[in-house]
Write a protein that binds this DNA or RNA. Structure first.
Lengths: 206, 206
DNA sequence: CTAAAAACTTGCAGTCTGTGCAACTTCGCT
DNA sequence: AGCGAAGTTGCACAGACTGCAAGTTTTTAG
């Protein structure tokens, strides 16, 4: 981020982003150290140097400070999906639309590793991680329906939306577990390829 | 349920099942009438004729009374999956293992219609509906890994687990929306067939 | 540059969710 | 019938979360 960027987005927005990041970092650190049930919103806010009332200006609930990240915002993904040329099949188009999110997560590897460790240790957080904003989901279903040239009640667009989300999140959890050391991009590609092939049983090892 | 069944499962278990069902019914009815934020746990418990302390003996939190159902218990599904003959591909085997859950949900159509209406009106409930118990999920991944003859860190078993779950829930939401009047079984079959085919774009309408 | 408006922070009071504990009640077993 | 196990209940309390209003900071307009 250059000085020009600072001027463009204003002190107000810059400080908001910093506060948000500070809250997230504090929440992840404290919960990793002590466990979810032993860290209060007050303590997270104190560690980030804001009041707990301010915490709730940024997150709707305590869990969200641990699971929410700008990289998971579906809105730009939907916009990029709509911009993929029409001849590209929907499955492939969704994959392409995820490119930037994948790069952003990969670039922030340490934060994501910590986040996904925290989530693994506190599985009640997982549903919140994998769910998206309902309006965003509906927007994606709508874009896919348009790409497929089908009506609003067709079964395929919500199915593609849900399955691609599942594939993406499964790859992300695998990447964070560290069993497979390949970049996130490779793991997402592998998951999407398996889905495109119809999830066949692998051939028996010879 | 015959008198013989009553004797077999005992008064204790019978009353527990009744209390649980009463709490669920009360929660769904009240929330449908007034909205999630305007119904308290105290009111739900009062309507079901138990104390609110008892409510928490049945559900870990308020939302769970709305989203949890014995039909969604993955444990019998995992057991049935393990019993499907080994030559059946994993995707197909998961589909077969879901048979009883599908029938149970279909048989309880009014309850499920109400539940899914409530969830549609309160989208924050959706992640909890579609998530499963982490231990159950790991058990399913393990059974699938065994069926596929792959190791514990292979990418395919968690992917199949997540994708089949997404397909099932997408079909269920569609069924409950009522746009398509076919039985749940047909919608699940259609979703699984699309997944098995690799989610291809439909041919253009002539 | 100044003043006003807009946006954000904070403290506070209060409600609701959820938990641990212990006394009481009901059920099941011998 | 008696006893132990299982389940219910009331209670006190902590923590999450919300609405409100006063105070502070940043942005805008003249």
């Amino acid at each position: 981020m250059t000085d020009t960027d600072n001027v463009a987005i204003g002190r107000r927005d810059r400080k908001k982003a910093q506060t948000r990041a500070a809250l997230t970092a504090a929440a992840l650190r404290l919960v990793a150290e002590r466990g979810l049930e032993h860290v209060t919103v007050e303590e997270i806010s104190e560690a980030a140097d804001v009041s707990s009332r301010t915490f709730f200006n940024y997150f709707t609930c305590k869990d969200e400070a641990l699971t929410d990240d700008p990289a998971l915002d579906g809105t730009p993904v939907v916009a990029r999906l709509a911009a993929v040329p029409a001849h590209v099949p929907a499955l492939r188009a969704v994959r392409l639309a995820l490119d930037e999110a994948i790069d952003t997560i990969q670039a922030d590897r340490e934060l994501w590793r910590l986040r996904l460790t925290v989530i693994t240790q506190n599985p009640t957080l997982l549903p919140r991680l994998v769910s998206s904003n309902i309006a965003t989901e509906r927007a994606m279903v709508s874009v896919i329906a348009t790409r497929l040239g089908v009506g609003p009640d067709h079964g395929l667009p919500p199915l593609i939306t849900a399955v691609t989300s599942a594939a993406f999140h499964t790859a992300m959890l695998r990447w964070a577990a560290g069993d497979d050391t390949r970049p996130l991009r490779d793991l997402v590609d592998e998951a999407f390829a398996a889905v495109a092939a119809g999830l066949p049983d692998p051939p028996p090892a010879s």
